[in-house]
Amino acid sequence: MAELVTIRCLSDNYAYLVQGGGQTILVDAPEAAPILAELDRRGWTLDEILLTHHHDDHIDGLAEIVEATGARVTGAAADAHRLPPLDRQVRAGETFTACGEDVHVIDVPGHTVGHVAFHMPGAALVFTADSLMAIGCGRLLEGTADQMWTSLSALNALPGETVVCSGHDYCKGNGAFAMSVDAGNAALRQRLDDTAAGRRPCAPSTLDDERQTNPFLRAPVLAASLGMDGAPDAEVFARLRKMKDEFRG
């Protein structure tokens, strides 16, 4: 059975180690020191690094980690021109094996146009980085609202027990915005209270958690309160994303 380790990096990034089947993989490499320290503490040898997208806060530690471990690097073929050198290029819809598990590559444009997620169905894990996030989603820096809604819908189709490993701890800001548009949501209030009290981490979370508390996944439910009853779900999502961009709470 695969073991998941969450590592805090930089000010609010997450990286993830997965160990199983005699292998260890890392998903994203924001900062080398805490990742190498965790590997050393556990006595694990790193075999492979999976990159979700090209932003500096997800790849800046890569060169130092590769130099220290010799791990191979896997990333999206579509973004190979702006990712660090890749040993393996993967495409949306492909499946490869890591840690004794099938890993499905899911195209999740929106935050960037080359963003991918990695789904390990046997381990009930999905690494979403800056697409689906804890109580939120990534900003639309390159893609469109339609693209992000399609990406979120694809992730939302996974089994509810899937553990969502997102790229940042934005719980405070995401939670404040969620409460501003979904104040009557008891599950959201409980989640925020539990996180503030240290009873649960911001991330990882389960997909069922996100379905109950994430305003972006709840766009169809929130349509009426936004005065958009009957509007296409993607338009409701676009309104919510714009509201979040302008939110100063």
Rank of each mutant, 00 (worst) to 15 (best):
D79V: 00
D194F: 00
R239C: 09
F118T: 02
L10M: 13
G143Q: 05
N214C: 03
T74L: 11
A92M: 03
S166G: 11
M179H: 03
R42D: 14
R218Q: 08
E210R: 05
Y170I: 04
V164D: 13
P204S: 14
T45K: 12
A92R: 07
G249H: 06
D130F: 09
L46A: 02
I106M: 00
G21E: 10
E67Q: 15
L51M: 08
G227M: 03
L207P: 10
A234C: 07
L17Y: 13
V164I: 15
A223E: 04
N185F: 00
C137F: 04
A197M: 07
C202H: 11
V18Q: 14
G122P: 05
S180T: 08
K172G: 04
G61V: 13
L140N: 08
A68V: 00
D229E: 14
P85T: 07
L46C: 07
E64K: 02
V108I: 07
K244T: 04
P201N: 08
T95E: 04
N185C: 06
L207I: 10
M228K: 01
L152A: 01
R241N: 06
C137E: 10
T150N: 06
V103W: 01
D182G: 03
F247H: 14
G61K: 00
G20Q: 11
I25F: 10
W44Q: 06
L240T: 12
A77C: 12
M243Y: 03
I7G: 02
D107M: 01
D107Q: 09
A2Q: 11
F96T: 00
R82P: 01
I25N: 13
S205V: 15
M120A: 09
L240H: 06
A157I: 12
A196P: 12
G249D: 10
R139S: 11
L140G: 07
L155H: 13
N214S: 07
Y14F: 15
T45D: 02
G75A: 05
P109D: 08
G138N: 14
G175H: 02
G249V: 07
D87E: 07
S131H: 07
G198I: 11
G173E: 10
T150H: 08
N13Q: 14
S131C: 06
N13P: 07
G70R: 15
V27D: 03
D56M: 12
F118A: 02
K242F: 01
L155C: 12
R82G: 01
V181P: 06
E142P: 14
D130G: 13
V105M: 00
H115G: 08
A32Y: 01
L83D: 10
L152S: 03
D229I: 07
S131R: 02
R189V: 12
R189D: 00
D12L: 07
A157N: 09
C171L: 11
A231Q: 15
V113I: 09
G93V: 08
F216I: 05
P232K: 09
A92C: 06
Q23K: 04
L36V: 02
E235Q: 13
F237A: 06
L240M: 07
G160M: 08
A145H: 10
S151Y: 04
P201L: 06
D233Q: 08
T69R: 00
L36Y: 00
P84G: 09
L226G: 03
H168F: 03
P220H: 09
N174H: 15
D209V: 10
L192W: 09
H115N: 13
A117W: 08
Q89T: 03
T150D: 10
I25P: 05
C202W: 02
M1I: 05
